[in-house]
């Protein structure tokens, strides 16, 4: 009986730590995803400004690191695919911004397209600042909650 209790307690403790770590990583991933899309927008802006490259060519030359940051480790053919792959990591407002950019990308002339890139970079950077300030506190709070919950269950079971 004691052995079972010990094993059970150990399992709860391990799961608590795992959940805490996963939650912390999830929060960090949200930040990395926004960073990824900001890098993507900078890259797109440069390709349009310097080379006026069509959208399909831009994505075919996008560095793999940016794809990975946007949760597409095997690459993507369209911006919509990248937005869909990142959906769970983006809050409402960043998701709205990247979805809006991908839907209107390529439908305007060069000067206007560059201005829109600037707007979305600025808006996403603002969202990044907000998410950054939340991530640390959420990670700590979430991790503590998971561990405390598991410790509490262990104590109850004993």
């Amino acid at each position: 009986m004691m052995t079972v209790k010990l094993v059970g307690s150990l399992l709860f403790a391990v799961s608590g730590v795992v959940m805490a770590v996963s939650y912390s990583r999830f929060q960090t991933k949200k930040l990395n995803t926004i960073d990824g899309f900001i890098s993507l927008l900078f890259y797109i802006k440069g390709q349009i400004d310097c080379f006026a490259r069509p959208r399909s060519d831009i994505l075919s030359t996008l560095p793999l690191e940016v794809f990975c940051a946007c949760n597409c480790p095997h690459g993507a053919d369209t911006l919509e695919e990248m937005v869909e792959a990142s959906r769970i990591y983006l809050d409402e407002e960043p998701l709205r911004l990247v979805a809006s950019f991908s839907s209107e990308f390529g439908s305007t002339f060069k000067d206007e397209q560059l201005r829109r890139c600037d707007y979305y970079i600025s808006a996403l950077s603002e969202e990044r600042r907000r998410v950054f300030s939340e991530v640390q506190s959420k990670s700590r709070a979430g991790s503590a909650l998971w561990i405390c919950a598991c410790v509490g269950i262990i104590i109850l079971l004993w």
Partner: peptide, 10 residues
């Protein structure tokens, strides 16, 4: 324009 009007602006 392959969905890239900006590429043909000029």
């Amino acid at each position: 324009c392959q969905g890239s009007l900006y590429a043909f602006s000029d």
